[in-house]
Design a binder for these strands. Sequence first.
DNA 1: CAGTCTTTTTTCGAGGCTCGAAAAAAAGAG
DNA 2: CTCTTTTTTTCGAGCCTCGAAAAAAGACTG
Lengths: 411, 411
Amino acid sequence: MSVGIRHDDLRKRNRAMVISAVRRAGQPSRTEIAATTGLSHSTISTISSDLIGEGILAESKGGEPALMKRGRPQVGLALDPDAAAVVAVVLSLNSLSAALIDYAGNTIAEESRRLVTQRMEADTLVDECIGIVRRLIEAGNKGAVLRIAVAIQGVTDSGSRTLLWSPITPHDDIPFADKLEQEFGVPVTVENDCNMIAEALRWRDPSRYRDDFIAILLSHGIGMGLVTKGELFTGTQSSGGEFGHMIHRPDGALCRCGRRGCIEAYAGNYAIWRNARQGDENAEPLADLSDGDIRALADAARDHDGPEREAFRKAGEAIGFGLGSMFALFDPAPLAFVGVGATAFDLMEPHVRAAIAKTAGGLHSKAISFDTEPNEVPLIREGCMMRALLYVDDEVFAPGTPARRAQVGVA
Amino acid sequence: MSVGIRHDDLRKRNRAMVISAVRRAGQPSRTEIAATTGLSHSTISTISSDLIGEGILAESKGGEPALMKRGRPQVGLALDPDAAAVVAVVLSLNSLSAALIDYAGNTIAEESRRLVTQRMEADTLVDECIGIVRRLIEAGNKGAVLRIAVAIQGVTDSGSRTLLWSPITPHDDIPFADKLEQEFGVPVTVENDCNMIAEALRWRDPSRYRDDFIAILLSHGIGMGLVTKGELFTGTQSSGGEFGHMIHRPDGALCRCGRRGCIEAYAGNYAIWRNARQGDENAEPLADLSDGDIRALADAARDHDGPEREAFRKAGEAIGFGLGSMFALFDPAPLAFVGVGATAFDLMEPHVRAAIAKTAGGLHSKAISFDTEPNEVPLIREGCMMRALLYVDDEVFAPGTPARRAQVGVA
DNA sequence: CAGTCTTTTTTCGAGGCTCGAAAAAAAGAG
DNA sequence: CTCTTTTTTTCGAGCCTCGAAAAAAGACTG
């Protein structure tokens, strides 16, 4: 049940507004902030001088070299890089990477390593994460780490605390957040990688990806990050948005998840390969497949008509019908296809469009715009970083808690 | 972009909180309101005496006959029935009904009539609505009508102003809200009937239908009203939630919407009849089918194995796979099946469950609870009424506008 | 190069809002 | 008839935002 607004909430919220305006705009002047937030100049003045006093914002003197405008020159406000630091961890199939990031979003230190995730114990996986974070904090020596955000391929709980299921490991219900919090004494969240891709797109290109858009990861499996009405869409109990496991053909092709007829069982890398090379929808999905394999299939499909081309057709069709079903629920939106599969999207696009056109969402199928981005890794990391920073913005600074907390981690 | 909170918004919001607490609780005392809103007693006292002064609330003296408790007895606050009135209009296939409702939710006057909606011009349809509303306002003579809410079977725009498409009429894009506003000078909304069903369920049984649930209308077509995270789920451009037009089998059975393979083309009344009696998925859907026809099919299916039973099996399967796909996106939730089809739900349920169990959403398929309610009409009306009243609560009274507005309508 | 303009930022008093504490009100209990 | 208990109102304090006016900081002008 929603609750009344207290008097002191007011300041908290408006502080949060100011911080968020600065993060979005980069180096806005106080006047600009007043304009975007709708608050008065005097309020902005008070709040920003508070924030500067607390070491959260800083006047950016060395900014633009004077705009040659008349009048008193604006002085830009920027986030103080030293106000805090966060760690963004990205865990995917056989790969772990992490970065230490300052409050302004600059990467201070990073590390990547290869693991054999599918053969590791759950605890070992967690320990690897703890290790990489610890090394970064030690190396960076950047002061207060206020948040750790982990992005994982798989399904997490809606509280962003536990990895419920993931294709990268045979283990279920791994309590990443609890374990890491216990270790470092800092709030931790675990979120779905595709949701982080959506978050990143929003910051990269706010004009295109604003209130409603869809990011689809075409990779070994199929993932989705979805923003509706300005909010990241998640399930009620899990991270949700498992587009790849919507049903394309009831009782159809065998999916990596053990069920049948999922979209992924037609459009995931392994499914495309299976259709092109094995011709048997029921064959056990391959565990490993390199990006090169997919590019080779795509080249073959472009070169001549044959099973490869047909495999991409089926993939496009599955994605298209899936999108059509989704659009029946909440209307079409701009799409970004991310991951290796995006390099072969030319082979799928006509079939995606044809399928969408056969569905209720297809009313405006020609107007639906597609965009592709072959490399998902930087997007996941960026999104994860932004998520961590936004948590700090909202939860740590806004309530008026004094900024620099007790030094964390590294016992 | 979200905007800062001004100082005067505070009071507005807290007024709205108080009103909403009273509407939910019935006759709460000031102390109870303080508890549910989290505001202090003094604040509640000030706000409620304002509201009483404005004629929005009233102390309910004739309430409970003293609870025999020690201490000063609580005095219940109730919505003043005379504070306002709203009109709820429900338009469905061949039927139009409306009710004049006071601010406390009591029906003052109502009227129903049969129309042949499919053969009427768009303007005539609108005029019928105008007529019924005018007669109610005249008959009720209840003072200020502050809101008119229309519930229609079909797709409306996200601004709740226009009927974009509906199976009850061949005409598209009928601007109901504009036309009615022009006529009566009162804000008007047009919303999807299934969304109103969801709204109604929430008020009828808040313990079961609270933050996350799904209402599915099993009727000539298949509709859905969906509440996620406490909010009615709508599309970004339309009323959305067109569960019936998610794709069950690509290029499958012919749907009333002209496309193929929609869930509705297997589970709508016409589809069940078609499968049971015609055995041809491609036959043109029947326009009319009585509730009796469906009951007869159900009886036959219960009586002996045959095409009727098979038709209900197919319907259940389509619904189950559809739900499974939806649950992949946002996790399972309690379900209410509403409408004639609900009387035959015993025939479908096992197949619904079996299908869900084959999907990603089926992880906990046994825990998903179903409920049935054969008559959708009262639900639609109730939901529509609540919607109208809530609009009045939030938009009209909360901003502090003096309550009783200029008398409306009835020139 | 000194004064004028223009725009940004700060200052200051006014008006509102919520809160906590204390007072008042309204019964039942003894 | 007085004491208890609980609800409701009253009142002053402390914040918060706002608008207007003042201060600040360069660019422009002759």
